[in-house]
Design a binder for these strands. Structure first.
Length: 427
RNA sequence: GGGGGGAUUCCAGAGCGGUCAAAUGGGACGGACUGUAAAUCCGUUACUUCGGUUUCGAAGGUUCGAAUCCUUCUCCCCCCA
């Protein structure tokens, strides 16, 4: 199955320029996807693009991952209703390093002709002067053409308007494509559907400047079945960086997908074949409570992103917190073991002296730890029956915890709602 | 330049001198049900030492009492030129 067919059955093909499939079928091609340095880590949303590059490479083509050291300085207006704030260079560099390190995990950089490469567009923009740019690039694309783009049109019609900086963004990105086409023989740019306009500016620029031919291919925006944004939890974004989203939380994110979403995600976010997926879906439908799909997703992706060892820990933690793991299990572990089980879980430390003085639940949960932002909120939730400590519902806000309540003389396990666990360490 | 309208608790949006910590809807969070799902139902949604305390764009003022009235300022929208 070729690359385009693969994307098609997985529902990952939103749009492509005529001739793209034919061009790819002629043999090995080079293609790229750009990643914005808006944060120092990529998130699950970027995972789709990363995996597209992986599929591209598996299909025998040569993938380029572009980090936007230059474009990040400008700010992509696509899909933004407001002008963006510029990032400082320090932050930008920090972010670039972070996402570059992440990208390196996913692609094969040593497999002969189609080895992956990471490029930074700052390298070809840093010495490009403004005058050169408007003469060599600006001259080939009319403002009329640029204004017809959706991302620009919407902003021109709105009250907030658009700065010249963001208006020129598509030219900057368009030139990236030209540069890679010219110097790396890169004939395809891929991306999310919101990137269509920017990508096509690139192919247009290549055509007008050098009479060359290049192609565009986009993937659809992923949405949840209830229409809300993909990739968010109550805690915010789901990041690929283990420091921002622990492997356990990452695993839980996928495990908590609804049935509808899981059936969709399994095609998008795994490398299973069509037959394998169909059999997984059938299996899931026969025994939905086993959540075969969610487990397959969570397991495969945690392993892909964080590695085998982190997956093992995430599974162990999940097993204890949601399985039939009793407190006795925790008690049977030494301190190291407890900390390992709770590795991906928010932790708070308070001193033993303080603890011995005796805190009521409110002080403990809202004052001494930030499990709750205020005592009022903690109280409401305790009264509402939503708070447990050591697996038992806290009967009243006045309940005082003592040394005898500590597991292994050191730990308390607090629970806000059913799924949010916290470890309080007393030492 | 002239005239008019507006800024309310996460969002939308009521309130127009006391009974307003502020209707209603959405979102979020919690509970029940379940499969750590979906749907549904219920509850909570400023802080508090539970006496109170600080909120309705900002600062002053009137009043026993202001989100509500007055003054100035900031920002937004609309109409005319």
């Amino acid at each position: 199955m070729n690359f385009v067919e693969e994307l098609r059955w997985r529902g990952l093909l939103h749009d492509m320029m005529p001739g793209t499939e034919e061009a790819l079928n002629k043999g090995m091609c080079a293609g790229y996807i750009g990643f914005d340095p808006t944060a120092d880590s990529l998130h699950v949303g970027s995972l789709l693009q990363i995996m597209t590059l992986m599929r591209f490479q598996k299909a025998g083509h040569k993938p380029f991952a572009l980090v936007g050291g230059a474009t990040g300085m400008v700010g992509d207006p696509s899909g933004k209703s407001q002008e963006r704030n510029l990032l400082s260079e320090d932050i930008l560099n920090h972010n670039l390093k972070g996402i570059q390190a992440q990208l390196e995990r996913f692609l094969d950089f040593d497999c002969g002709a189609n080895s992956a490469e990471i490029v930074n567009n700052y390298d070809w923009f840093k010495n490009f002067t403004f005058l050169d740019f408007i003469r060599d690039v600006g001259k080939h694309i009319t403002v009329n053409y640029m204004m017809a783009k959706d991302s620009v049109k919407k902003r021109l019609e709105s009250e907030v308007g658009m700065s010249f900086t963001e208006f020129s963004y598509q030219l900057v990105q368009g030139y990236d494509f030209y540069y890679l086409w010219k110097h790396k023989n890169c004939i395809l740019q891929m991306g999310g559907s919101d990137q269509w306009g920017n990508i096509v500016t690139g192919t247009e620029f290549i055509r007008r400047k050098d009479g060359g031919q290049a192609f565009a291919l986009t993937s659809p925006l992923i949405k949840k079945s209830d229409g809300t944004k993909f990739g968010k939890t109550e805690g915010g974004n789901v990041w690929l960086d283990a420091k921002k989203t622990s492997p356990y939380q990452f695993y839980q994110f996928w495990l908590n997908a609804s049935d509808d979403d899981a059936a969709n995600y399994i095609k998008i976010f795994t490398f299973f074949t069509e037959e394998e997926i169909n059999s997984l879906i059938t299996e899931h439908q026969q025994a939905p409570h086993l959540r075969t799909l969610q487990k397959a997703l969570a397991t495969n992706l945690t392993k892909l992103v964080h590695g085998e060892a982190a997956l093992e820990t995430a599974l162990k933690t999940t097993d204890f917190l949601f399985g039939n793991g009793s407190l006795d299990f925790l008690k049977s572990l030494d301190n190291e073991g407890v900390l390992q089980v709770f590795e991906g879980i928010a932790q708070f430390t308070i001193s033993k002296n303080e603890f011995e003085a005796g805190y009521d639940t409110l002080t403990l949960l809202a004052d001494k730890t930030s499990i709750f932002p205020s005592k009022g909120e903690a109280k409401k939730m305790i009264v509402g029956g939503g708070v447990s400590v050591n697996r038992e519902k806290v009967p009243s806000p006045e309940k005082v915890f003592e040394v005898s309540d500590l597991i292994n003389n050191k730990f308390l396990v607090a629970q806000k709602g059913k799924k949010n666990y916290f470890l309080i360490i007393v030492e």
